[in-house]
Write a protein that binds this DNA or RNA. Structure first.
Lengths: 238, 238
DNA sequence: TTTTTTAACTTGTATTTACAAGTCAATTGT
DNA sequence: ACAATTGACTTGTAAATACAAGTTAAAAAA
């Protein structure tokens, strides 16, 4: 019971600093507290602080300069819909609303699943959910997700209305996206997609099939996205 | 003088291991020597070894597993059309033929160019070229490129029939792509695009606008790609 | 005033030590 | 013969310490 999840100190500090950068407590271009200050504040030693800072450097949140300090670099560049992050931060999530069409539920994997599954994934079933994302009240993309039902207790009962699925996975289950593969196509909207995205049948739609790798061996997240590119386009840096 | 360049130990180890992985001394899938072995061999301490290994993890050369070891992962990422590389390696360039529709020519920048240009770029004019890429004799994508006419002598007189534009830039001019940004859309084929890609007007086409950054400060390459996704899809890893 | 030096910061590198936790094969007990 | 346990590996986390090297501004010297 209780099942205490052990989170290393350097990861805690990483999460705290990351959040503070994203929420604007540290402004872009300003300096983070010095390593020694962070040691004092969080009561840990410098190597541990440096481990957290190094992760922030790798993720593009800060830029270190010897003799100067750690410079905040707010928009972590990347994270477009095409890049490593979740679909959430695509447009600037202030204006991105999420509608859950299908709350997470546990189902067996579909018969004709377009990706190969590992045995463990196959045996455990998957958590399925559908979301519709809107900008200015207009539907922009619709996505379905298949997540292996492996050691993600109560995920199916969580709400994702106002937070990113990937944010939840990262903070609640320590699941991080490490990379992935994707296939892109321009297709014609069929009746279902047309209805969801408020498009006529036959209008062009951008479809993305992706398989995301995580820090858990053999744990992959599968998403399919249909994107209405009439008024928006998908932006990404790399 | 002599000007001794000081290279940190962890960087030396990184370079050694990297070279050994790339030259095949350590085979893909095999284990690297353990951290303690590396300490003994190179006469350094474990934190230093770990610093080198961490860099290798970040660059995708190894994969660490607690209790097991460091697994060699030879191909340091692949690069697809969506990633950093040029459009060439998209499908596996054996089957990718290139037809030059417009040989490189020097022109002024278009009036309504969709990207902001630096002063230097603006003043120098650009090199323009159009290509059609075919798989199995069938057109798959059509791309136009704008390259600043800055210190790229005789580029406009080169032939790109059988080599990648980016390969030429890298080997002949030491210009390397370091990253970039892109916008993706699904649009309807107009008459020109339909004709080029062998599609009916109104069929969905995937369009990509990209601005590529290079190792030359202020030297960007601008491409627009129209992709026929009827029989192929764009594949990328990240 | 202007320049140089110093001192007090910052991050970078490196060692040493200790224990936790995952993996795997040999050993042990049944 | 089989299952469980042990022990010897592996990497992960964390502390305490020391000095090197880049940056900056205040203090001292010209």
């Amino acid at each position: 019971m209780a099942e205490e999840i052990k989170v290393p100190q350097h990861k805690k500090i990483y999460e705290i600093l990351r959040k503070h950068i994203l929420t604007g407590i540290y402004e872009e271009g300003s300096l983070l507290p010095s390593e020694n200050e962070l040691c004092a504040v969080h009561n840990i030693t410098r190597p541990t602080v440096r481990q957290a800072l190094e992760a922030l450097v790798n993720d593009g949140f800060i830029l270190k300069k010897q003799g100067k300090g750690s410079i905040v670099r707010k928009p972590p560049q990347k994270i477009g819909i095409l890049s490593i992050s979740g679909t959430a931060s695509a447009i600037g999530n202030q204006y991105l609303q999420t509608q859950i069409l299908q709350r997470p539920q546990i189902i067996p994997w579909p018969d004709n699943f377009p990706f190969d599954l590992t045995e463990i994934e196959q045996e455990s079933g998957c958590i399925y959910m559908e979301r519709l994302r809107l900008v200015d009240e207009q539907p922009v993309f619709y996505d379905i997700n298949h997540i292996p039902n492996i050691n993600v207790p109560r995920l199916s009962s969580r709400s994702f209305e106002n937070k990113s699925l990937f944010e939840t996975l990262r903070t609640q289950y320590q699941i991080e996206i490490k990379g992935g593969e994707q296939k892109l196509k321009a297709i014609k909207a069929d009746r279902l997609i047309g209805q969801l995205l408020n498009l006529s049948v036959g209008e062009p739609v951008l479809s993305i099939e992706r398989k995301l790798n995580t820090n858990r061996e053999g744990f992959h997240i599968y998403s399919t996205i249909w994107f209405n590119s009439a008024k928006h386009s998908i932006y990404g840096t790399f």
